[in-house]
Design a binder for these strands. Sequence first.
DNA 1: CTTGATATGTTATAGTATTACATTTATCAA
DNA 2: TTGATAAATGTAATACTATAACATATCAAG
Lengths: 160, 160
Amino acid sequence: MDTIGFEHHDHDACIDDGTAAVAAYCARNGLQFTRQRRRVLEILLEEHRALGAYEILDRLREEGLGSQPPVAYRALDFLTRHGFAHKIERLNAFIACTHMGENHAPAFLICRACSAVAETYADPSEGVLGRAAREAGFRIERAVIEAEGLCPNCRKERAG
Amino acid sequence: MDTIGFEHHDHDACIDDGTAAVAAYCARNGLQFTRQRRRVLEILLEEHRALGAYEILDRLREEGLGSQPPVAYRALDFLTRHGFAHKIERLNAFIACTHMGENHAPAFLICRACSAVAETYADPSEGVLGRAAREAGFRIERAVIEAEGLCPNCRKERAG
DNA sequence: CTTGATATGTTATAGTATTACATTTATCAA
DNA sequence: TTGATAAATGTAATACTATAACATATCAAG
């Protein structure tokens, strides 16, 4: 699995593919991929950074789709519930999933300089955390794993 | 390093030792361990679960120490800035550090049933996450690592 | 076509956190 | 000891994040 978000890539395809994958999944599974849900996903897919619910709501409002908080939160709830988007707890913000379809235990790399967020993978039951949990008798069901630091682009800019 | 929080232990000592350790550290480093800061730390130390800022503020209010949000947030800011307490991002809540003095990369095990929180250790630069970060050219400076699941006590209760 | 489930519109409110500024207290050098 | 500076506190106001509640509309299955 690749870490997606920092390197150059075909961003239009990124949006189109993401939307298409979700549309297909919804069709297969009898989920309603409504206008609002689709639009919120597109808004998230447009950026590789996390957007606050109210930022998203502003966009929806401009476009004449809903103007009240629940509109944004409901769409985000749908998207996160099905793994099409993720909440970044550290930022109280949301980002489109970049590993659609893969059954994932997502982890995030957050650049403190440019706010880019890349999604990667980190199984919580592996490594030190998994060992500590087993030793304590704790059963991990999910995990928030969000690393903060400098992305490769911002490191270069600082001659680091 | 032990994972502290689920198993039985001498909780009074837990509070006394924690407060003493912080007091000593502050004395050594010219930090002001004021009444409010001490009291907030004590409040946190009384429980091995995360408390919201307003829960803490309620306690302070009852005791006649401050009643406005900044009172709680300032004390929490001091405590977290110096590693005496940690914020649990998933819960928007705070918990006293149980590994005072140890230079740590804290990770947390959060029980979804009883809300107990145990602090453990997980170096973010190790394991899959560290490898993914290195491959992406990302430099990790800190990480939020919060596992959710069932603590040993709650697992037993559910005959799991 | 109707019934039950799902989604949307909207108002109100709850919960979390910060800004701003006045005042007080602590620290330290003269 | 005093005066200057920095740090901490008191307090009001406000910003940001999220959910509850309920009416209406739309969809999906029989």
